[in-house]
Amino acid sequence: MNTPVLLSARGISRSFGGNAAVQDVTLELHQGVVTALAGPNGAGKTTLFNLITGHLVPDRGAVELKGASILGLKPHRVALKGIARSFQDLRLFGSMSVYDNVLSAIEPTPWLWQPGGSSGAAARRLQVERALDATGLAELAGTRAIDLSYAETKFLSMARIIATGAPIWLLDEPASGLDPASRARFVKLVRDATAAGVTVCLIEHNLDIVTELADRIAFLDQGRKLAEGRPDQILGDAELIAIYFGERRE
């Protein structure tokens, strides 16, 4: 990789009781590069995200953003440093409208109002509208999140991230269960973002999407990183593919 490392997790481990969910994993995200995290269910992919974003604290290891440690920071501090993430189970703000979901995602100041006065508010509204346009949700702005269809909830989850303008996105199975047309729209969203310089790490089971989007693939299984490389290297490895599809050889 030619671009510099933006975000890195080095040698991180975390276990729950006796279950080592992530063991000594090192992951580097290079500026502007799309890295896919692949691996079977329970491999530790989501846990790795949680360890990076501060939703979980690693037992061992280091997490650095542009060379400075962000280990042990609370999730909201990590977020404010420009790392936006999605959740596998989405975690939308269910009782709020689509518009408010996105707007609230860019109102981090924990005070009675946001700084910046009315011009700040206008700028945020513009950001929200752009994100809604990009995700095709503009018409649904007033709908409550719990009333959306499945595909719409997936795009709302993306809209919240797009609106933040964060330079790093961690996406946890953002396209799972989408129909082909929606999947194509999703691919375009990510392409547009990377063209604008966003660094993306993507957990994805669908190999079509992985081949279409990823510049690199890191392959996890049972908490360990088994391999990392270009898509053709990883997807050409019969052993990894066998693990992936559950035909584990002993």
Partner: peptide
């Protein structure tokens, strides 16, 4: 305003609110 939205956001999903920079303790 934003205060109400932040409160409802953390009521609906605290971890997601945190992921968007909300200081749950302060709020």
């Amino acid at each position: 305003g934003s205060f109400g939205r932040s409160l409802m956001a953390l009521r609906d999903s605290e971890s997601a609110a945190e992921a968007f920079g909300k200081d749950v303790r302060a709020l």
